[in-house]
Amino acid sequence: MKVGVVSYGTYIPIYRIKVEEIARIWGENAEAIKGGLGIYQKSVPDVDEDTATISVEAAREAVYRANINPKDIGAIYVGSESHPYAVKPTATIVGEALGVGNDFFSADLEFACKAGTAGMQMCIGFVRSGMIKYGLAIGADTSQSKPGDALEYSAAAGGAAFIIGKNPIAEVEETYSFTSDTPDFWRRELQPYPSHGGRFTGLPAYFRHVTSAAQGLMDKMGLKASDFDYAVFHQPNAKFPVRVAKMLGFTNEQIKQGLLVPYIGNTYSGASILGFAAILDVAKPGDRILLVSFGSGAGSDAFSIVVTDAIENFERNPTVWDKVNQGVFIDYGEYLKHRDKIRM
């Protein structure tokens, strides 16, 4: 029996701030930053949006498209590094808003930017074991960045939700994870903003884990880059995923559809899976997709996913790119208000 993605939904807040506007405040060179990161603008949540509201909106779209009874969802996992509460789950808010009832497995997950794909793996296990009919895995963030820090140009908001079950629109053939203890990026308890190791986040962290997970998966399955129609990698900026694709032998053509970061920034737990959703928006039956997330600390989850015939009757509008391409631009003052950074 095939197990995989039965439905998916996405949410990207409509507000955007341009790199130029942030650079203007900090006296930096916008062109150099755009050239360095490959990011032009990022999404910003409204004052009344957070990881819980993004999760609910994405999950509602997924439930609506699946046309299933929410009571058949037997597990909810929300992965984020910006859960609204330090203690008290986001997943229960999602369960209540969806009308799932009280009969479900649930927890909030944290593994930097890969907590969403970790939730997908857990749901796949639950469904394959027959413990649940459907599992809901969400990755969402309203990521924090210290004003003036390099992260401020990329830390964005958005999320995606996946309903995992049998008779999928996209079957998860195989998943493989590569995990090590690598402190490249972290946030200590009670600290408002994350810290990072600067260039240490590159080779020993992102590149080592993403390539190891992707290669490990392909070796396990006896596949090579050209066997995939699409690939999507975690995208903290536009440079890293393009370079890692090249390292693994993927072409720009394979990664283009899922590369959202230039226009919405890094949505952290949402980043790789929003790209994956953008690929599902256009994929045809038989297409094989490589999804590789990355979470600092560090680990990567790799998935080989094959699109099934069921996708042809599946409602895929509005598409992820529709949501990426909308936008209301705000200035830095409004941005500070939206991100609750004005001391009152």
């Binding site: 409204d46 009344d48 949006e49 819980a52 509201t53 509602r60 808010i93 808003a97």
Partner: peptide, 16 residues
């Protein structure tokens, strides 16, 4: 749409 209506201060509960 599912949104925040407010919160009971910085340390209180959030009203969705």
């Amino acid at each position: 749409a599912f949104r925040k209506y407010g919160e009971d201060g910085n340390s209180g509960i959030i009203y969705y």
